[in-house]
């Protein structure tokens, strides 16, 4: 049997096993990903939700929520915090420690904001899903993150 036929058989088997396994498992995912919903009204963003939710916010909403004293969580690795962070943000590379900090400060149901370096960093979204799995119900991912905050000339804080 030539390698082309083998390749087709291996791919076909993988599709079949993947489809069956994804259908049978309790945490199977949809075949097409749905984009994260965006929320623009700061009041909507902070409503207590019936179901756990991860939503996106832009720079304007992030600024309003920051002004209203909402907790900000920095998802960047700790070495990046040397260049500064959004005032009042908390951070920890250890998700367990971070989740305990958030839980102590605001509990599981209140909304809070997670950000990372920019539009493309991905770590804020990743952290959001990890924290949702731990039990946090209203997580807002600040799209644009640190870069859009500094580009807008907003206040930043440094660790001493």
């Amino acid at each position: 049997m030539n390698y082309q036929k083998q390749v087709i058989i291996i791919i076909a088997l993988s599709v079949l096993i993947g489809a069956i396994f994804n259908t049978l498992r309790h945490d199977g995912i949809k075949w097409l990903a749905e984009p994260i919903k965006t929320v623009t009204d700061p009041e909507d963003a902070l409503n207590i939700l019936a179901e756990p939710s991860i939503r996106e916010i832009d720079i304007e909403t992030a600024r309003s929520l920051h002004g209203a004293g909402v907790l900000f969580v920095d998802a960047r690795a700790e070495e990046y915090l040397l260049e500064g962070f959004i005032p009042g943000s908390i951070a920890d590379d250890d998700v367990e420690v971070l989740s305990e900090k958030i839980n102590t400060l605001i509990g599981l149901d209140k909304g809070f904001v997670i950000y990372c370096s920019d539009d493309d960093c991905g770590s804020s979204e990743e952290l959001a899903y990890e924290l949702q799995d731990i039990g946090f119900n209203n997580i807002l991912v600040f799209k644009g993150g640190w870069r859009s905050w500094t580009d807008a000339g907003l206040e930043i804080e440094y660790n001493e």
Binding site: S14, I17, G18, F21, E34, D120, C121, G122
Partner: peptide, 22 residues
């Protein structure tokens, strides 16, 4: 996969279902 910003139409899920078995 989505973080690479190279896969269109939400197909990252289909890839994530099949590629590990492959």
């Amino acid at each position: 996969i989505a973080n690479y910003h190279i896969v269109p139409f939400g197909l990252e899920n289909s890839i994530a279902i099949i590629l590990p078995w492959l």
